[in-house]
């Protein structure tokens, strides 16, 4: 889509970065937002239908694929799908063996879900930026941002899930007192420095999910913006930049899924550790 003028280019970019939002608008009541303004006015009580829809679809795809492989799993010679699935499972198991030092049967499936789900969601980015927005606009849907990980709500939402687990296991393993002690008496084990420690540790604790979510969001969002900018070039020049960027993104997509997973495991491992 070549840009006619600065105005349409800006509009094009903004349009592509706008989620399909459904929520409570002060004037229109419960409705779809027809502009970025309206979406902003809806405040917290709004839902990004595209983010939710695509992420749930990808999650369902993950569950369906892996469940299928699991149901057909034999101890004999594995087939193609089973091979691929087992490769991922073994990869996660090895990762856990080297990074997770506690004993918790929940962590392995958690890491598997995170890795494959994020990988699938990130991979949506390889689809050319105009396909789905165009298709949905023909169907009468104004906005369609198909990569859920370019929405901070999605990445921070998953990070929040991990954060809740960090808190849960910290309290479960160390006890409420132990956890409080860890927060207040490290790194300086002196009563006079308790407030200082507390500030330091609580910031450290909160930075974990924030960093986790924002890192993934930042990488994916930046990549998406570049894709949209490339799409503004004349149609015959697009592939020149689009192809290298997409190939590079095969790496980024996998790497970001991997980083999110590994950091989640490391944080949870720290939550399981006694001092």
């Amino acid at each position: 889509m070549a840009a006619g003028s600065e105005n349409t280019a800006a509009y094009y970019i903004q349009h592509h970065l706008q989620n399909l939002t459904y929520g409570y608008h002060p004037e229109n009541g419960w409705s779809l937002a027809h502009s970025a303004e309206e979406a902003r006015e809806m405040g917290f009580w709004a839902l990004h239908l595209d983010t939710m829809g695509w992420s749930i679809a990808m999650g369902a795809l993950f569950i369906w694929l892996f469940r299928k492989a699991g149901r057909l799993a034999t101890t004999g010679v594995p087939g193609g799908l089973q091979n691929a699935v087992e490769m991922v499972v073994e990869f996660i198991e090895n990762l856990l063996r080297s990074t997770f030092h506690g004993k918790n049967p929940i962590i392995a499936p958690l890491a598997l879900t995170l890795f494959v789900w994020i990988l699938f969601m990130n991979t949506l980015k390889i689809i050319p930026v105009d396909y789905f927005p165009q298709l949905f606009s023909r169907l009468g849907v104004e906005y369609m941002k198909i990569v859920p990980t370019t929405d901070p709500n999605a990445t921070l939402g998953m990070a929040l899930g991990v954060f809740i687990l960090i808190i849960y296991y910290s309290i479960k393993v160390k006890g409420a007192g132990g956890f409080a002690k860890e927060l207040s008496l490290t790194p300086f084990n002196h009563w006079a420095l308790i407030p200082f420690n507390l500030v330091l540790e609580i910031i450290g604790l909160l930075v974990k999910p924030l960093g986790l979510g924002l890192r993934l969001f930042g990488n994916m969002f930046a990549g998406e913006v570049i894709f949209i900018l490339i799409a503004l070039l004349p149609f015959w020049a697009i592939w020149l930049l689009d192809v290298p960027w997409a190939i590079f993104h095969i790496l980024v997509v996998t790497l970001q899924a991997f980083i999110f997973t590994v950091l989640s495991i490391v944080y949870l491992s720290a939550a399981h550790e006694h001092h």
């Binding site: 970065l17 989620n19 939002t21 929520g23 979406a39 902003r40 809806m42 405040g43 917290f44 009580w45 709004a46 839902l47 990004h48 983010t51 939710m52 992420s55 749930i56 999650g59 993950f62 569950i63 892996f66 499936p109 958690l110 598997l112 879900t113 995170l114 789900w117 859920p148 929405d151 901070p152 709500n153 999605a154 921070l156 939402g157 998953m158 929040l160 899930g161 809740i164």
Partner: peptide, 21 residues
């Protein structure tokens, strides 16, 4: 790019998928 209920929705979806897994 507003923070809204999608955050909670995603957390819920995450929990459900992890549980299913």
């Amino acid at each position: 790019m507003n923070i809204n209920m999608t955050l909670i929705g995603q957390t819920l979806a995450f929990a459900i998928f992890v549980w299913f897994c």
